[in-house]
């Protein structure tokens, strides 16, 4: 016999009451962003598109040399993405800006790499803890824990983590490391920041960089778009950007300001704390089964369980 409409509502009400009565404090999502993280501030108005950062990154991380050398600027003819062989790329954009003196279009250059989010979606999505956010700001990847599910690649709002598809035996997820080893062992800034000839990349504590970015906005009226990309996007990122051209024209995504792990983690943690939801589900199902069985035996008392 089917579950009656009235009985269904009764059961649903019990479930809802249990869900609401669960203490809220246990559910409230809290950011795990490190308080004193390092970061980098990229000033797009300073970048000259020399690709030295790509070269330094390639050398430091011992990545394979590209087919086209680093001084070949014709790579700018197409938009590139970081992949398993390059952790960072610089792309050229023509936003319509024109040189005042010569009347020629002026190019802007944007460096892309892992943004090292304060509350990274990849860390939240990783089921083995291979991705973690370190106190120094780096989103760290531990190949020993990785099972290759590539959830991190799906979760990343910036589409950064890449995979060594060509490597059948020991494939790894590849992405910018914030030169963690340089930072922790030699107290040195990331290679891309060090090599940059114009200091388009400034390295420092994220809090200091934010202040610096605000100061640059304040001291140079009209030079920049009044926005620090990465200050609030997806809850904040360790890489921050200042630009003299609207970010939307430079391929920057318009992203929610809330940390991405917040909604899924809130849902998941509230549903699974103390395993109450599976317990409730199976209790309900058990109740329904018991009830059905009881009603069946009441309606047909003369028929015993076995047919023989």
């Amino acid at each position: 016999m089917q579950l009656k409409r009235r009985s269904f509502f009764k059961l649903a009400a019990v479930g809802a009451a249990t869900a609401i009565s669960t203490p809220r404090s246990a559910l409230a999502w809290q950011s795990k962003a490190p308080a004193d993280a390092f970061g980098c501030l990229m000033d797009i108005s300073r970048c000259i598109g020399c690709r030295k950062c790509e070269q330094a990154c390639n050398a430091v991380n011992e990545l394979p040399l590209p087919v086209r050398p680093f001084d070949d600027l014709s790579v700018f003819d197409e938009k590139r993405r970081p992949d398993a062989t390059k952790f960072t790329v610089v792309n050229r954009y023509h936003s319509g800006r024109v040189d005042d003196d010569k009347g020629l279009p002026v190019a802007d250059f944007v460096k892309i790499q892992c943004m090292h989010c304060q509350d990274p979606a990849c860390v939240s999505a990783c089921i083995t803890g291979a991705m973690s956010k370190k106190s120094n700001g780096a989103v760290h990847y531990d190949a020993d824990k990785c099972i290759g599910c590539r959830y991190c690649m799906v979760a990343c709002p910036f589409e950064i983590p890449a995979y060594e598809y060509h490597n059948p035996l020991t494939p790894k997820v590849m992405k910018c490391t914030l030169c963690e080893t340089l930072l922790s062992e030699q107290n040195k800034p990331p290679a891309c920041a060090t090599i940059c000839p114009t200091e388009a990349i400034t390295f420092g504590k994220r809090s200091t960089l934010l202040k610096l970015a605000k100061k640059r906005l304040h001291d140079n009226p009209g030079r920049y778009v009044d926005h620090v990309y990465g200050e609030k996007e997806v809850g904040g990122t360790s890489w921050l950007y200042l630009s003299n051209v609207p970010f939307a024209k430079l391929g920057f995504l318009k992203l929610p300001l809330k940390p991405l792990p917040r909604l899924p983690e809130t849902l998941q943690h509230s549903l699974f704390s103390y395993l109450w939801s599976p317990a409730l589900l199976f209790t309900l199902l058990g109740g329904v089964m018991y009830r059905n069985h009881k009603q069946q035996t009441l309606q047909h008392p003369e028929q015993p369980g076995d047919v023989s």
């Binding site: 800034p189 920041a193 000839p197 420092g204 504590k205 200091t208």
Partner: peptide, 19 residues
């Protein structure tokens, strides 16, 4: 030196030359 923590707004020597 570049990225001097005490003078974050000051350019390092290399960037000062290039800029």
């Amino acid at each position: 030196q570049a990225f001097h923590p005490d003078y974050p707004e000051r350019l390092g020597l290399k960037a000062a030359y290039h800029q």
